[in-house]
Amino acid sequence: MYFATIFEQDEEKLIVADKTKTKIFYLDKLCADFGIQPFFDMVDFINEQDDELIKKISDEINSDRKPDITDISQLNFAAAIPYPLRNVICLGKNYKDHVAEVNAAFGSNKPDPKAPIYFSKAAMYASGPNDEISVYSEVTSQVDYEVELIAIIGKPALNVAKDEAEDYIFGYAVGHDFSVRDIQSERKQWLFGKSFDGHFAMGAWIAHKSIIPFPVELEISLKVNGEIRQQSNTKNMIFDIPTTISDLTRGMTLYPADMIMTGTPSGVGMGRNPQEFLKPGDVLTASIEGIETFDVTMCD
């Protein structure tokens, strides 16, 4: 089961699809049959849903109910969560091969982190699959890509034990943590170089956790203009999702629709020799097995 946000005549609508993404239903229309009021947006839906509602929705879309939409190509997708609840929580250096390439780029020899490194990405608005993303050529020539698995929280989480972490997850999405490398290095704290307007991008679909086996071991890749740049598996994270959720919630309550970007594997532009950053017109194809493959295009 997948969830998405689409635009229809300038209005945002939530949709839900079966696991083949061929039978698609308007979420509000479907939930109205259960006597549930329309949802304000995806954040509101994630906040309101629980296991019981998810089961009802799942039963309904897998019944012989006639789909509202069958042709996905006609849909105009927003990012799955176009207006994030607050800053996205991100993990830095969470794949060994990426730690190694960062060391090579800076001529340093830092060990793998002993505990997760977190920072935040400010994004009032998430770029979606149809948006163009700026390389900000007037202020930088070092905009880099990082494909990441996004874990989306499903209910308030505080002091969560590792073996309970999955209960607190709503689902997963594919994300881009665009990074302005010169600003990121110059400012030491990463926030600014990670938070340029438009530099948080997410795919159209949230894969509900019920269709993703746990622990999450999925192929993840990124192509630039068709050429493979990043390719790994989410099982290669240094700190896995249960460790991260358990660690974060020792002191920080996570809320429904909070998003955690779980780090990027090697292959970023900064790690190439010579380094290679994004240019206007570049097309990026991000893909995570079982979730989604989507393109975004860079602009000036």
Binding site: P113, A115, P116, Y118, F119, S120, W190, R250, G251, M252
Partner: peptide
Amino acid sequence: NERGQVFYGKSFD
């Protein structure tokens, strides 16, 4: 200081 970025040590509830 342990985490490399200051966000976590400043963001507890």
